[in-house]
């Protein structure tokens, strides 16, 4: 691979857009080329700097109001709301409730997985901006857990992992894959971990997978009808440790 090619492809590498084969090729070039290695490092630093600075704008309230006003207003006695439908869904007859409402199963196709991981990383980045991280601030799982009740169809499990070295700092409602989902927020040292939890119709257990996107590590797994994404700038080893501790605490909870 020439430097000229590498100088374009390192961007796709940084962005996690290359397939494994090409990624290896670019990585091999960068390892043996000081010029491209230095460039890539700078691009990553700039990207990190942008991610950590406040480059986004908040829509003025007045704009939100104007748009709201232009839309037909909801009527109280309309068709069953998604919430009531999903309540039935959560009570067990998943398949029939979904068939009845045409609700699409949230089963990830492969090409969706990457998109959702992208969204999860976006949500993580959004959360790092000033004042966005936590809706309910508490290190007490018995405060955070009930806070989610009524806000989401299925509340995410909230587990205190302080003794295991991951401090629970609160919870937040977020928006991923066009739906509201819960985010449980932990910290290790100065590193934030967002644990996103979404309901899925697929109850199959999926073992954890670690991936890297835009410099963040994502540990993704599924268990008992919930999809989990833990996102952090922690190293893959520490994020794996977090996931393992979380999963064993869940198992202990279930057994105990």
């Amino acid at each position: 691979m020439t430097c000229e090619e590498a100088e374009v492809l390192i961007h796709a590498l940084i962005d996690g857009e290359l397939d494994a084969g090409h990624a290896r090729e670019v990585e091999a070039h960068v390892e043996g080329c000081a010029h491209c290695a230095a460039l890539m490092k700078e691009y990553q630093e700039i990207r990190q700097a942008i991610a950590e600075s406040d480059v986004r704008y908040k829509a003025p309230l007045e704009l939100r109001r104007k748009i709201e006003k232009a839309l037909p207003q909801p009527q109280p006695q309309a068709a069953p709301t998604r919430r009531s439908v999903l309540r039935g869904f959560a009570m067990g007859s998943a398949v029939s409730a979904m068939a009845a409402t045409g609700l699409v199963a949230i089963v990830l196709r492969n090409d969706d997985e990457q998109r959702i991981e992208n969204e999860v990383v976006s949500a993580h980045l959004r959360s790092l901006q000033a004042g966005h991280l936590i809706d309910v601030v508490s290190t007490d799982q018995h405060t955070v857990k009930p806070w989610f009740n009524g806000k989401l169809d299925v509340s995410p499990p909230v587990i205190d992992l302080t003794a295991q070295g991951f401090t629970l700092i609160g919870g937040r409602l977020d928006y991923v894959n066009a739906r509201e989902i819960g985010a449980v927020v932990y910290k290790r040292r100065q590193h934030v971990i967002n644990l996103f939890v979404a309901q899925t119709a697929n109850t199959e257990r999926k073992t954890a997978k670690i991936s890297t996107l835009q410099g963040f590590n994502i540990r993704r797994w599924s268990d008992r009808g919930l999809n989990y994404w833990a996102v952090s700038d922690l190293g893959a080893d520490e994020l794996t440790e977090f996931g393992d501790k979380f999963e064993s605490a869940m198992r202990a909870n279930k057994e105990g």
Binding site: Y57, A59, P60, I67
Partner: peptide
């Protein structure tokens, strides 16, 4: 003819969370 509250509700849910993104 656009005045369909159910449609508006679905639209709100789907599109309004991206208002800050769109504005940015």
């Amino acid at each position: 003819s656009q005045d369909d509250p159910e449609k508006a509700r679905r639209f709100r849910e789907a599109a309004l969370p991206y208002l800050d993104d769109a504005y940015t």
